[in-house]
């Protein structure tokens, strides 16, 4: 079960030096159903990362609250997995030992943990790289491993912050396909941040479009394209046009 409620979340950053304030998020509210795939889409700097970090418990909020199954998300918790925008694998651990990290933290022995995460290794197609160190992997493989690492904790919601942002278009498409397969396999709620309209339209059940800073919810769009989706269908194009227009408005109102 992974129901997420974002309720009137605002976040203002204070600069220590001169006391000046940046309003990153302003009164954000939306709900995510259990098992739903929701993308948060918005221009760079509109507070997407901040919102996700608050949901992960890595960042505090100025007002409002985020709930997972009715519980406040003030501290990090393995129930809320996160895949970061930057490469975040532990470089001193092999791929398999990166994936077992969460289980080891629950007190499960290394041997048993390795056995248990085998299926996640397979799920992301990295069986042959289990003993490789992160620096031996391509960017796409690193993010795959990071996804497996997050999944191994069997989270109820997976928070993903532009996980494919640094990858080339080809790899990005492949990983999007794989991610959808994982989503069908595992009963996990996805909260996926992106600044790519294509990505949002291809992946989500619903898209939360955010306005430029301070981030507000501009519109929530239900994506009713049948799955498996075609990237180039007429309906997809029409939807992309609509979303692009929304984002363009943001550029001009700024």
């Amino acid at each position: 079960m992974g129901r997420v409620n974002v309720k009137n979340v605002s976040r203002t950053f204070q600069k220590k030096e001169d006391g000046s304030e940046t309003e990153a998020l302003e009164n954000i509210s939306f709900d995510v159903e259990d098992g739903e795939f929701v993308c948060i889409l918005g221009p760079s700097g509109c507070g997407k990362t901040t919102l996700l970090r608050i949901a992960a418990g890595l960042e505090t909020l100025s007002s409002g609250e985020i709930l997972l199954n009715g519980e406040k998300t003030t501290d990090p918790d393995p129930k809320r997995g996160m895949v970061f925008q930057q490469y975040s694998l532990f470089p001193w651990r092999t791929v398999i030992d990166n994936i077992t990290f969460g289980l080891e933290m629950q007190g499960i022995g290394k041997k048993e943990a390795r056995k248990r995460v085998e299926k996640y290794l397979e799920l992301v197609g990295l069986e042959q790289f289990r003993k490789s160190y992160p620096h031996e992997l391509s960017g796409g493989m690193q993010q795959r491993a990071a996804i497996a690492r997050a999944l191994a904790n069997e989270p109820e919601v997976l928070l993903m912050d532009e996980p494919f942002g640094a990858l080339d278009a080809q790899t990005r498409n492949v990983l999007q396909d794989e991610l959808l397969k994982i989503w069908e396999h595992k009963h996990v709620t996805f909260l996926f941040v992106t600044h790519s309209v294509d990505e949002a339209v291809f992946l989500s059940d619903r898209i939360v479009v955010m306005s430029a800073r301070p981030g507000r919810v501009k519109e929530i769009i239900k994506v009713e394209l049948p799955r498996p989706r075609s990237r180039t269908s007429l309906e997809a194009n029409r939807l992309r046009d609509h979303v692009l227009k929304l984002l363009e408005e943001e550029r001009y109102t700024k």
């Binding site: 890595l58 930057q86 532990f90 470089p91 990290f101 997050a150 904790n153």
Partner: peptide, 26 residues
């Protein structure tokens, strides 16, 4: 910072564990 945060999200939250499993090897 991202390594410490990744560890926290994965359930490694006590100072001693963070030092042992993240900070020291890093």
């Amino acid at each position: 910072k991202v390594h410490v945060e990744a560890a926290k999200v994965l359930g490694c939250t006590k100072n001693l564990d963070l030092i042992r499993y993240v900070a020291l090897p890093s």
